[in-house]
Design a protein around this nucleic acid. Structure first.
Length: 271
DNA sequence: CCGGACGCCTGTCGGC
DNA sequence: TGCCGACAGGCGTCCG
């Protein structure tokens, strides 16, 4: 479900309520996420102060003095901060109660998400150490993408969705970025000229920044930490718009499948 | 190394 | 109305 803008929206929503607070209780209602939630998570966290939160790729990192809680929302996960008395719903698998009656609740119907504990430098964790650059950072630029894509014959959409190339670009924003850049999603990455790659880099940054500013995209059930939907759905130019006219005025949007993922594009303005 | 397919899960929706 | 298949915002792993 959540791509980078939705995870960033979640981070900004929960941080003010829990940053700097002490953990007073941890309840693991269902440990069967993508990997088992560590059985000793309560004893790791209770009594310790949350020193800071950050996002890396689509992971949320909650830093404590003696380690870091790594959260991932998978396809259907969401986090909310509620009063501990707020009734639980069937898929609320993990609760972390902070001082001041702030309850951080992880809901994840499909259980593709994760909650892991790591000690030492979080970025050295196996899941994080091989990730590509953040798309909104200066290190993600045309020189970098050019160097990477020269060796890649796969469709460009698959390449920009590969977290070892650049993180955070999920299925919605890959289609949207390629449309903004005028690049056909199935084009072999190594056959795209530098000037067009430069447009793609700019498009990825713009699309993601706009989506963050809109609070992410709500297609079905994404909500922020207060339960509000994201408004970027109204900005989508191709995603989930099969057969609707493209704004270029020269064709209608088509749907195809790349890497087993739905892909939306305009054959008239994307080459 | 690369590229493509698979599997993990539950919920929802459209067609018959 | 009920059933059944297709599909869903991610990603590690396996195989050729």
């Amino acid at each position: 479900m959540p791509e980078l803008p939705e995870v960033e929206t979640t981070l900004r929503g929960i941080a003010p309520h829990i940053d700097g607070r002490n953990v007073v209780a941890v309840h693991v209602h269902d440990s069967r996420l993508r990997w088992p939630v560590p059985a000793d998570l309560p004893e790791k966290l209770v009594g310790h102060k949350l020193l800071g939160l950050e996002r890396r790729a689509k992971y949320l990192l909650l830093h404590f003095r003696h380690g870091t809680l790594i959260l991932h929302l998978g396809m259907s996960g969401s986090l909310r901060v509620v009063d501990p008395s707020h009734p639980r719903t069937p898929h609320d698998h993990l609760e972390i109660i902070f001082s001041g009656r702030r309850c951080l609740r992880l809901r994840d119907p499909r259980r593709f998400g994760a909650a892991l504990w790591t000690e030492g430098e979080a970025t050295a964790h196996q899941l994080l150490c091989a990730l590509g650059p953040e798309p909104l950072s200066d290190s993600f630029d045309v020189d970098y993408l050019h160097a990477i894509t020269r060796q890649r014959r796969a469709p460009i959409k698959n390449v920009i969705m590969d977290g070892h190339v650049v993180v955070g670009v999920g299925n919605i924003y890959a289609s949207e970025s390629l449309h903004m850049a005028g690049i056909h999603p199935a084009r072999s990455a190594h056959r795209i000229a530098p000037a067009r790659l430069a447009r793609l880099v700019v498009a990825i940054k713009e699309v993601l920044a706009d989506a963050i500013a809109s609070g992410g995209t709500t297609l079905r059930d994404f909500t922020d930490a207060q339960g509000k939907p994201g408004y970027f759905r109204h900005h989508l130019r191709v995603y989930d718009r099969e057969n609707l006219p493209c704004e270029c005025g020269r064709g209608s949007i088509r749907r195809s499948v790349l890497g087993q993922r739905a892909t939306y594009f305009c054959p008239a303005c994307q080459r």
